[in-house]
């Protein structure tokens, strides 16, 4: 996964970058399976590796597929990134250990979710549709807004083209 990401940062061919990001998404899906998040892994494989790649390829079809060489070496972004990384690693050292059953995340509401109050064996589905139903409603709103925005953006272009033709 690290190799895929580093290659992604280096390559200038956008088509290669899109294919690499698809491969990266599949690798992330396998990592999520290993972390017991099967629902998330399935969504990541379908949406992250599937739909995103199709969208990126569609956009590439409309734009040109090579990236210009940067005018200067990226020293400033590199130093900012390294500084942020150092800060984040320092902060992560204060977080609970990996797979620690006493961690706060396992003490709060999760035990109640696992008591099967809504009679659905898949707890993720139960939480998504029942306990946190309003979240899902908000998600649908976001997707609708994004869809409306895309239609507004690309529709204007067609009108303009029709105007150019006349």
């Amino acid at each position: 996964m690290a190799f895929a990401v580093l290659a992604l940062a280096r390559t200038r061919n956008l088509f290669a970058a899109v294919v690499l990001s698809g491969a990266y998404s599949f690798l992330m899906a396998t990592v999520l399976v290993a972390l017991d998040a099967v629902d998330v892994a399935m969504t990541e494989a379908a949406v992250g590796a599937g739909v995103s790649t199709v969208l990126l390829l569609g956009a590439l079809h409309l734009c040109k597929s090579d990236e210009a060489k940067p005018a200067h070496r990226p020293w400033l972004p590199l130093s900012v990134s390294v500084a942020t990384a150092a800060l984040l690693v320092y902060g992560a050292m204060g977080l609970p250990d990996f797979a620690d059953p006493q961690a706060p995340i396992h003490q709060h509401v999760a035990p109640r979710y696992l008591q099967n109050e809504v009679d659905v064996p898949n707890v993720v589905t139960a939480v998504l549709a029942s306990f946190r139903g309003f979240d899902t409603l908000g998600e649908v709103t976001v997707v609708f807004t994004a869809g409306a925005g895309i239609i507004a953006l690309l529709r204007r272009r067609k009108h303009k083209r029709a105007g150019d033709g006349q």
Partner: peptide, 15 residues
């Protein structure tokens, strides 16, 4: 079982 709550949040985040 693993904690289901982050899975739900991330499902929303992916979409």
């Amino acid at each position: 079982y693993s904690n289901p709550l982050p899975h739900v949040l991330i499902l929303t985040a992916i979409v």
